[in-house]
Design a protein around this nucleic acid. Structure first.
Lengths: 231, 231
DNA sequence: CGCGGCTTTGATGTTCATCAAGTAAAGTGG
DNA sequence: CCACTTTACTTGATGAACATCAAAGCCGCG
């Protein structure tokens, strides 16, 4: 795991082609010059809801959660995002202040660019702007669809869905370490912590999963999928 | 209420400044030439989920709902949109097929442009693309925030919220005709039709609102707001 | 005029939140 | 490093919120 600030060369950045495929060499140098790479450890706040937006950022490594604080100090989690899913925030071009917080749920590496510089490039380079728009649209669409999906399901369906989400989409393995607490799962699916735990315990009793603290092993994916679809 | 296909001049379109403020006269003429204006009456389907995206569209008048069909023929309503809120669909640049349906809930007027023409302009005119991106971001952000808001509330809070939404945001009046059925409200807030009706009846009994079929009069906005915030 | 969809109310049952209480794990200061 | 505090996890009991089922009236439309 990378730690601390690293001087990386943009030329060999894996994400270059995705975000900057339609950027000239001069522009890329420009951007690279002002770029700052930051490492956040698990649990650290990357962006705080309400802060002024003055940087454009994209993830290179890790996993983050997007969340919003409602009046009564209850947190709602919008989505979990890994690199490629998360290109700065949805609202960088439409708002002055962040509407959501972003927190690392795994050690994460983020690149930061001055927003004005990015905006200047965007104003001059239409292909770049289109690329950006495409990525932002994709990320946003995913959030909306995922939220609708979850809302259709009942408690156990939602818990099953989250397990499959981590297994299939984030880790691509049947055994993995849950990067989030039971409470965070609850905040994501809109249920209580107790009931998330109860669902997990039931899955365990039914031998659908095995639990060792944060480690989860999905033993019967077919049944889990069934629960997720039915619920 | 306008009916049928109308030959309108783009020069005097109210929305011109919003979408096309950074478009040259030549480009505008180009766009205007290929533009098609369509009128949909209440209930008509404008876009069907799954259809190929080959047009860019924006609303001039009316009110529409965005919805998604889940497997078990249950519809979920994402949002209601009036002009300015709704610039084509979120996914025009990131997907080939519509992920949501759009239906007129009031008589509506929509302008259609060939998507390729718009994309061509977008590729050449960065300011135009930025304007577009800003509008799409705003529209999407609104949907996400509204959905989180609703999710925080209980049944009565959600119903109160919807009433205030129509009153304050859509109609800007305390008395209005509900443009949607009780079932559609239920599909929007994720509750059953019966419970939406029960909540409305209770509000009526408590003299918070008056109901005459589809006509709603908000008699005690303060209490309604209270219910919406508490729930 | 009769059919189907929308609305309404009541009765019943299920699902889920809340409360309570205890264990385990993890961070904190002496 | 150990006592201490806090936070995460777990289970059970209870009640509230909400869905489901049922039945009837209403309205528009062919």
């Amino acid at each position: 795991m990378m730690k601390g600030s690293v001087k990386c060369s943009c030329e060999q950045c894996q994400l270059k082609t995705l975000f900057f495929s339609h950027v000239t060499v001069n522009e890329l140098t420009d951007i690279c010059e002002i770029k700052e790479e930051k490492t956040y450890s698990k649990g650290e706040l990357i962006i705080k809801e309400g802060d002024r937006i003055d940087e454009f950022l994209y993830m290179k490594e890790g996993l983050v959660k997007l969340s919003k604080n409602s009046p009564h100090e209850k947190e709602q989690i919008l989505s979990f995002s890994k690199p490629f899913d998360f290109v700065s925030l949805l609202s960088i071009f439409s708002a002055d202040y962040y509407r959501y917080s972003v927190t690392a749920v795994e050690d994460s590496v983020v690149c930061l660019l001055d927003l004005n510089v990015v905006k200047n490039h965007a104003q001059q380079n239409a292909m770049f702007t289109m690329d950006l728009m495409t990525r932002i649209s994709e990320a946003t669409d995913k959030i909306i669809i995922e939220n609708l999906e979850i809302r259709r399901k009942n408690l156990k369906g939602r818990v099953a869905h989250v397990l499959l989400y981590f297994s299939n989409y984030i880790y691509e393995r049947d055994e993995f370490e849950l990067p989030v607490s039971r409470r965070e799962i609850a905040e994501y699916i809109g249920m209580t912590t107790e009931n998330v735990i109860r669902s997990l315990s039931e899955f365990r009793k039914d031998k659908i999963i095995k639990i060792f603290g944060k480690d989860i092993l999905i033993a019967d994916k077919k049944r889990l999928k069934n629960i997720s679809e039915f619920g």
